[in-house]
Design a binder for these strands. Structure first.
Lengths: 248, 248
DNA sequence: CGAAATATTGAAGTTATTCAACTGGAGTGG
DNA sequence: CCACTCCAGTTGAATAACTTCAATATTTCG
């Protein structure tokens, strides 16, 4: 154990060296499918891990782009502020997902990212990632897959356009369920980290409509709502509710 | 001139060697910012140019992914078929834009792409592109920009969620206007290549609502509609109509 | 030219929004 | 510990927006 006296006075717990080698999340994150040696090379480019407290911003629209951020733990929302000051939520992001991909096109962040709970991210300097990617083709290819997956996901949101409120909510819940499952959490029982208003903004509905739609799904016996806690009591019927589209 | 007799009997005009060097579109397309030598290298990976007639498909959902396609001329729409057989339009694509980016993530096309007018595309085998990208960093970086731009665009579509029909239409028209302008066409005067139904599907509206919203914008003196021909008569007011968001 | 597809418009019906009242839980300070 | 406040969420009633159905007009294309 390092004696306290040897630690810098205000040692910043919020920024320590990151390492993919020792990270339990590699199977979800950037290093998917790399061998030990490649992961070691990748470690060299990750400068640090940052702790972001609930309510703190990871980046803001308009700021210069330097790094992608892999979510190590926690939960983020991204949003843009419109002219009139209203906030439009553009996404929710959980463990193993990569933030900042939108900023590559203009070298500037196009949205704000805020932590909805205490979180940790790994910073991935993009210039270095491209450099190292040249020598590790599978890493580069995986970056392409991640970006492509993002495109597929965002495009899938268009399907909401043709749906009614209940269908949108069902789709949203099933997508969350799917993502939780992939991370080893229960797909049938989870807590929402966002408010009704944020859900509504994301889905193109007003918060009252979200609330009503949730109540309705509950009445119909498809889900159990307890403020932020959701239980999917009939996932089959919930799927049918959506027209089966885009639950991933 | 090659005598006719030397040409194969049914020589396929629809598939000739492509070349970025001699393409007038490079400033819009993949080779942006490359020098002469890099472009020559790029030429080696482009096998061919394809002619796609109006109504023909460039690719279909479910097919194996091999190549990206750069639109050389013409106009495409991408769409997915839902369970119930309804068609959901996921995008419109014009000269200089790249199709197929969604397919990278799963090595399978996730949508159908059909030409809305006689078109030409350059086929870009993706494996080769990644290969050559390793030796031309600026090419690789530009691919990343293109993918990122796609993410930004798709995410911008979420802003439609909070808008009324008229605002959605205005946003849509301004986005088209912007893209036409970038290609040297008039930003104030253009022809729609798609039907009202396709617009509606894309924007999350019914075709009748699209029609009404267009009529309304015309009544209000913001645009001039003549079936598929559109003139933006007051682009300033049209911009204000959208809440100024996402016209690119 | 004529058939089929596309577009417009009206009226009725549905769905979502708005406005408003009220509930419940988390956090604060007396 | 309780009262108080603030914020998130729920619910009802009235209104606005979009959709549906239907009739008609226009355009497109073989």
């Amino acid at each position: 154990m390092t004696p306290d006296s040897l630690m810098p006075k205000n040692f910043n717990i919020s920024s320590i060296k990151a390492s993919c080698s020792s990270c339990g999340l590699r199977e979800l994150c950037l290093p998917v499918g790399l061998d030990e040696q490649e992961i070691k090379a990748l470690d060299h480019l990750l400068n640090q891990r940052h702790r972001i407290r609930r309510g703190e911003h990871l980046h803001r629209a308009g700021l210069d782009f330097h790094s992608l951020y892999a979510v190590r733990s926690g939960f983020f929302k991204t949003y843009v502020l419109q002219e009139d000051g209203r906030e439009q939520v553009t996404g929710f992001h959980m463990t193993g997902e990569v933030l900042g991909l939108d900023a590559i096109s203009t070298d500037m962040h196009t949205c704000n990212a805020v932590a909805l709970e205490d979180s940790e991210v790994c910073e991935i300097p993009f210039v270095k990632l491209e450099e190292i990617g040249r020598t590790i083709p599978s890493l580069m290819h995986h970056l392409h897959k991640i970006m492509s997956r993002e495109i597929v996901h965002d495009r899938g949101m268009l399907l909401l356009g043709g749906m009614k409120a209940g269908e949108r909510l069902a789709t949203f819940l099933l997508n969350l369920s799917y993502r939780f499952a992939k991370r080893g959490y229960s797909p049938l029982d989870f807590n929402l980290r966002m408010t009704r208003e944020e859900i509504g903004s994301y889905l193109g509905l007003k918060l009252e409509t979200v609330s009503r739609a949730l109540s309705r799904l509950q009445e119909d016996g498809l889900i159990d709502v307890n403020s932020k806690h959701i239980r999917l009591t009939d996932i089959g019927r919930l799927r049918r509710q959506t027209g089966n589209s885009f639950c991933e």
